[in-house]
Design a protein around this nucleic acid. Sequence first.
RNA 1: UGGGGAAUAGUGUAACGGUAGCACGACUGAUUCUGGAUCAGUUAGCCAAGGUUCGAAUCCUUGUUCCCCAGCCA
Length: 561
Amino acid sequence: MNMNDSTRQSDFIRDIVAEDLKTGKWDGRVVTRFPPEPNGYLHIGHAKSICLNFGIAAENAGGICNLRFDDTNPTKEEAEYVESIIEDVRWLGFDWGEHLYYASDYFEQMYDYAVQLIKKGKAYVCDLSADQMREYRGTLTAPGKNSLHRDRPVEENLDLFERMRAGEFPDGSRVLRAKIDMTHPNMNMRDPVMYRILHAAHHRQGNKWCVYPTYDWAHGLEDSIEGVTHSLCSLEFENHRPLYDWFLDALGVHHPQQIEFARLELTRTVMSKRKLVELVEGGYVNGWDDPRLPTLSGLRRRGYTPEAIRDFLKRIGMNKVVSTVDTALLEHCLRKDLNKRSPRVMGVLRPLRVVIDNYPDGQTDELEAINNPEDASAGTRKVPFSKVLYIEREDFMEEPPRKFFRLAPGREVRLRYAYFITCTDVIKDDAGEIVELHCTYDPATRGGDSPDGRKVKATLHWVSAEHSLPAEVRLYDHLLKDEASADAADWKSNLNPDSLEILTGCRVEPSLAAAPAGSRYQFERQGYFCTDPDSSEDKLVFNRTASLRDTWAKIQKQQKK
RNA sequence: UGGGGAAUAGUGUAACGGUAGCACGACUGAUUCUGGAUCAGUUAGCCAAGGUUCGAAUCCUUGUUCCCCAGCCA
């Protein structure tokens, strides 16, 4: 990956890794892993974990980070998700080399380990139903009680477990449990389930198995088998750590250290899988890569850069505090990156026709425009100018309020890289709607500067009517409304009804004619845009990645108050 | 009411017994052929109360608040 945006940083996890390196705890090895379950699409919360795990591996000589699919539940997992996860991790900029693994490849080994535990008298087959098991488990404040099958002889457990695997029993009829302590204050330690019977086809193993390991049993083993040193996971697994440790100790195998960190929450969006699924399946958004979603595929389609996401994740730090990061910080990182690298272009979102009365009919001029003022090497391009132009509707006001610097009757402004123009007439339709402006231009200001030193207070973007290309532009806003109702159950009432606005009559400069999908631009004075995969030469489609900071909008807001 | 965690400006994050700093946001101003960018500045904080210490965000005690756990999900 590109390391120049991941300068060395520190946090409590990296401190532990550094300390372990110093004491030689793992013989100088650093092995981490990113272990998604292939049951959905990755989002920026996952990216926090990805950057952490791959980042730590990259920062330490010889460090390794495995990409491991935690595919222990065939009823929820699909190959489609495996593909998308691989694509997203790559896109984010990380490389696992040879280290791509599947938990399901360890099923045989896990089974053998389970047999070992049975032989040690530390696991037993239990015939309790799910309902009964819940009863026996007790509650947060009351201890549980032992299953009547808890003291089954080893030989019987071995026999039953083998027959479970052989498919002799129906789903839900039996499980293999660890024999720990039904009165343990930590619920996870009350004889947790290690295997359940699931007659379901697995996306990689097919019908080879009908018993599947649970997370608690499988995860530590996966880490152990792969020689992981630091197993990093989110806060909700803190309560599982004693069990993670118990299993590995009971087996006497390599025992990685589990360390927990807080997952990422962002303002004005949703991050939980459950909610994302609800949005996608309920048709509130258009698929997993809807540009409004915080999924990596959504952010990619929206025009986010991996660099901006990594920079953001680096800035928010790593902690155990449950917190919600302001989306404004993500947007800041985005704009910072895009500002440096995006070619400038002129596009008019809501066109207003302007006729330059004193400009010769049929004449075309080509004006030189700077591609990126932040990057001299980006060079310049030619933009056509003619008698009939389009400017942004909101750049003209017939009765300009205080602090409105743009075009108004009798006022002179600059057309960027072109000429000074002065508004001489306003044409309206029967409904009183402004349909056209008449202006004059000053030929002496060609290129955008007045030889007499005359100043204007505004510079407008524009396109030549005849030369410009039609385009559709999709404007996005936050998924959630600003002031969110506190009712967590009714979270969908907080959805922002204006999160998507589609503009169809837009006009963009001709240089965009063959803009390939995914290419990013700054539409001057408007924001950052990228070409949507829906775009073609016949029909250009752009997504607004982010708007530019808009001081005038702020002033307007204040004036309204 | 059991157990496990966490509390530092509006938000996120540093400080590891020795001047509470950084970033985002908000607000000023300068500058500008993008009301962009840039530059300069302002704003605002140690959950509470005790204790230890020459000295406490940091150590101790008590309390408060918030998060997680009763799937054969991960």
